[in-house]
Write a protein that binds this DNA or RNA. Sequence first.
RNA 1: GGGCGGGUGGCGAAGAGGCUAACGCUGUGGUCUGCAAAAUCACCAUUCACCGGUUCAAAUCCGGUCCCGCCCUCCA
Length: 529
Amino acid sequence: MKVYNTLSGQKEIMDLKPEVGMYVCGPTTYNYIHLGNARPLVVFDTVRRYLEYRGYKVTYIQNFTDVDDKIIQWANELGEDPLKFADFYIEKYFEDADKLGIRRADMHPRVSEHMQEIIEAVKTLVDKGFAYEINGDVYYRVKAFSDYGKLSGRSITDMLAGARVEVDERKEEPVDFALWKSAKPGEPYWGSPWSKGRPGWHIECSVMSTRYLGDTVDIHGGGSDLIFPHHENEIAQAEAVTGKPFVRYWMHNGFITVNKEKMSKSLGNFFILRDILDKIPADVVRYYLIATHYRSPLDFDDGKLEEARRALNRLKNTLILLNEFLIADRHEKQELSGQARELDEEIQRLCDLFIEAMDDDFNTARAIGHLFEMAHSINTFIANENRENSMNQEAARRAAKTFKELGSVLGIFAEAAADTESIGEKLLPLFAQLRKSARKEKDYSLADHLRDWLGSHGITIEDQQEDSRFRYDNLPDTQVLIEKLLELRGEFKNKKLYAKADFIRDSLLEQGIIIEDTKEGARYKFADR
RNA sequence: GGGCGGGUGGCGAAGAGGCUAACGCUGUGGUCUGCAAAAUCACCAUUCACCGGUUCAAAUCCGGUCCCGCCCUCCA
């Protein structure tokens, strides 16, 4: 496998032991996360899934920055306790990330729970001459770390000369950064040898990553805006403490842009993830985020999500076709020949290409391309071959297994919640039957009316030879469905089509819905269960 | 100013020396269908920002020009 390592600026062969340690910079929790924050989550979740697919045991750590200037500022303005405030958004973070199908990390360490380790590390840096104290604040002495700048590709001398950073008179050099900051009145603090205060931003990641993954971390990831100064400083701190290389492979994702401008909180052009997830299925959002290579910029607008939805639909449609084609309890393992064998070989070939693409710096865009080719072969096979043939069944079954497996490596086939069917789902077949009989009787105006009505409520009907297929992201309220059925029943009654009217009544009764005819019209209630 | 990365069809996006420049969306025509939808089959870049160069061979390498984004300040 190869990765683009920010440290070397080129793709490198990944030399990994069976057990891989991975650290990804997590959010500072003072707000709901936005779409831009979601990109690294999905990207590195996918990296993790793929490494596991390739047989590695991955220990995945993602931190929460729950002690931070902005958190303190916002919490103070709202008159809340900063840690509780941060906790609230950590909870919200998990709600959003779970919904997006981001697997939880093996550990989610928080700054507030690692004060002792952080203070120890700062102490070590002071002892070794990499840091100095001034009036209760501790700064990192950048000049003392000769490798400083190796990640972001800048030289210490240039930076010292440049001095664009706002200058704190007390620092030895403008580029020196805070390891420990003494608390101002009204700010939370922790005791330390220097002052009552809190850590600077960068030290937490150096400490927590090495704490859980050892002195040298295999993969460290984050957005490319973290390269400088955050990750540069992490290296300076960690390597000064341990004397060993901090990270072997640095991975950084590109940004999401809006009208070609970086989506960011300061520009105010961000979209809150949960607002998007209210409207767009999570797997579509995931698909959108990985359909482009992770290092490329990704422009956002509603049209892009709509395109993603259509594209993903094609892939998921193959899943539906496979389900319709496959016959349960037909597992006759056997030699394949003819078309069945050709499909099998084609799927294997594409699977190999998928792996080749992912092996090349996690090229999800290329990998997805091969998934589409797979869908194409499967669809063609299903359209042309006899499902009663057991060899075809076997070939389709194998294809389905591979196709689903690769899709789940990318996390783009949201596992259909296999739990209890809602009442609404049980009512849909009723609509299908009404439509089917209407079609048989050539009552196309009723058949079309049903399709249009369901369509206007977000349900698409596609007719098959016998039955109809439904597609929808969300069902309308059960109430709406029932009322429509009552309306139809009323029309049947008016036309004296009592058999149909009774069919509706009886079918609803089977679902525990009782209809009562009153002077004012039909009413319904749910039977007690 | 310094450091990264990029400019590929109507749109999105792969490709990084040599098969017909993947794949998706959109569009067009055919099959299927009561009509649709889905599926299927076919078509849709002699050309990869521009100009030079290297090479038997360049979208891919080198030099130059023009654009664009990001980082250098909290940011994924």
